[in-house]
Design a binder for these strands. Structure first.
Lengths: 340, 340
DNA sequence: TTTTTTAACGCAAACGTTTGCGGTGGCGTT
DNA sequence: AACGCCACCGCAAACGTTTGCGTTAAAAAA
């Protein structure tokens, strides 16, 4: 309603041309000190603010970066956002966030919307249901910088920042071994997911490295709280032969602890438990859960950094890189059993 | 880089004027069916997409709504976001999210950025450090619709959707009373915050209604996990005279439980504990935490709904309303003591 | 005094759309 | 033959900026 004051308005009132006003505001040498003073003072007085829309159109640059991610409510993703936001803000970029809700169609429509709005670049984490990658190719064909985080398409050349699931799982398993665990159960994610696969491989590799046998019966497909309840019988049955559990994520680890303890099996006294992810849940669980920390904030920072580099060095030929963040062990009480 | 195809391009190639192309694309009656067919087919073929920047400038309407909130990582806020996003997307709006990180200066700069980008409306939840409201008045003076959620300024006339902190606190306290608690401690938020104030008042009111005395020593300013650790001594000292705790939010409730149990005081056997907020933490805590559910998603939906109404009925005189959501009790094990 | 330089400013186009208005040609009506 | 009407299309302005270039007048050089 209140018609923001424009350069034209100022020009008209001051009896000079818009170009002069524009130049005066940016200290252009062609403008006399007197006019500059006058314009700047007046602009200040009427609280002139440049119209970003006009600017964007003119330089076809929006100073906005688009983000597409599965779900903000997941703590990991919102912490990635925190990291992104921090450096984006410092660098003068706005962010436009879209959540796909793990829905492929939503993801392509989001991509299109960001394209339409001419964002300077896109940060993206694929939805679980995304198999077709046409929309991604479309973005890239249009020459807009894209960098992926966490869930990145293997078949596409682009900057990526991911975490080292293999190493994380290996570290976690080694930790269990180091505190004396001899029979370690792995609660695994579906093997068609990369993370499920990599984390299981890490688990196996750790066993391998210390010459412990790999027992296929010690791997149960079970990666949600409900899965744990469904497999409670199987887990409890194994409870007296195992002394450690490595769960593919924190919430299954916590659910497992709850099931164990409800049945009189003490954690960590009887069985040590370690998770993966380190959301805020880990410290709140009882006992506080050991886990490998997935550094969301850092991942966000790295990703946006890569993107900004790409945006601001446009033209120069760019070699794509993949940053791999190694997760770090967070030892808490769920594995603080002393070696017996 | 790849120069998106424009209406001008199409016009040039097809040998007609941009205006004709524009009209043909929107089925304007002035254009012959033949030309329409031709233009539409060609546009389809070259994947023409209107430049949102140009559109925005022309109609000074961006179809974007701005959101300013304290921190996305807090589950409550991200669930509000989920609610907002859902209806915003359905209504064809994009969202531009800014987090103030509880920093006043960041908040005003965010407000300015959204103004500069001519968002159609703003959804806002105040930072804890916001006392000065000039930036809000600035928004309103510029005629841009603003609706507040959760943390709303009392002195400003606007649409607001908040939760009934008073009632929630009263319900929670009454619950403690109903299970036999006689001496109830309140871990409170700072009293300069509305929620801190209202929740304490609800606590007092509940005591009042059943004729229980209000003991000022039973109110400790303590609203974060770290605060609990800092006040652990004081809490433990009171532990043998109290039998219930009403904490201003879930994380302090959980931290309090942890401190108590670490010192051999059983929850709920010795002391019942109830929180406020009902994030996912509540079910994971040990014991699972009773709390009052704060419906984030619903709040988000209500807020964006109010905003869209305001945007799309611009011009009509608008009477501001405040929607108050009543929280509901979630009873879990932390208060499941039987009356003795 | 005349010419050249220079300081200071305005014109107009451009970014990609939309839209009021005016124009052209064809056809039907008297 | 003269007129009006209508279908169809283009011109140009506008949204708010920026910027290359041209213009003017005054100051410096000749």
């Amino acid at each position: 309603m209140a018609h923001q004051v424009t350069i034209k308005d100022i020009a008209k009132i001051l009896g000079i041309s818009p170009s002069t006003v524009s130049r005066a505001l940016k200290d252009h040498p062609d403008i006399s000190p007197k006019t500059k003073k006058m314009v700047q003072a007046f602009a200040e007085k009427v609280q002139y603010r440049p119209n970003a829309l006009a600017l964007n159109l003119r330089r076809s640059k929006t100073n906005t970066i688009g983000i597409i991610l599965p779900e903000i409510v997941h703590h990991f993703f919102s912490s990635v956002l925190a990291g992104i936001d921090k450096v984006a803000y410092a660098a003068g970029y706005n962010v436009m966030i879209c959540q796909s809700n793990e829905d492929f169609n939503r993801e392509v429509s989001d991509a299109q919307a960001l394209l339409d709005n001419r964002v300077d670049g896109i940060l993206m984490s694929l939805s679980k249901t995304t198999l077709d990658l046409d929309h991604i190719h479309n973005l890239i064909d249009h020459g807009i910088p894209v960098v992926f985080f966490d869930r990145a398409p293997a078949s596409i050349e682009a900057d990526k920042v991911i975490i080292d699931d293999f190493k994380g799982a290996k570290i976690a398993t080694h930790h269990l071994i180091s505190i004396g665990c001899k029979n370690i159960l792995h609660l695994a994610a579906p093997q068609h997911l990369t993370i499920g696969q990599r984390r299981k491989e890490g688990y196996q590799q750790a066993l391998n490295e210390v010459g412990m046998p790999f027992n296929p019966e010690y791997v149960i497909k079970c990666d949600t709280r409900d899965d744990v309840y469904a497999n409670a019988g199987k887990i409890l049955q194994l409870a007296n032969e195992i002394d450690g559990i490595f769960a593919v994520n924190d919430s299954t680890a916590i659910a497992a602890m709850q099931v164990l303890m409800k049945n009189g099996i003490k954690v960590p006294d009887h069985i040590s438990v370690i998770g993966f992810g380190d959301g805020p849940n880990a410290t709140i669980a009882y006992p506080p859960l050991s886990t490998v920390e997935q550094k969301g904030i850092e991942m966000g920072k790295e990703a946006i950094q890569l993107l900004i580099n790409q945006i601001e060095n446009e033209g120069e030929l760019h070699t794509f890189q993949t940053k791999t963040l190694t997760p770090v062990l967070r030892i808490r009480e769920s594995t603080s059993k002393t070696i017996d």
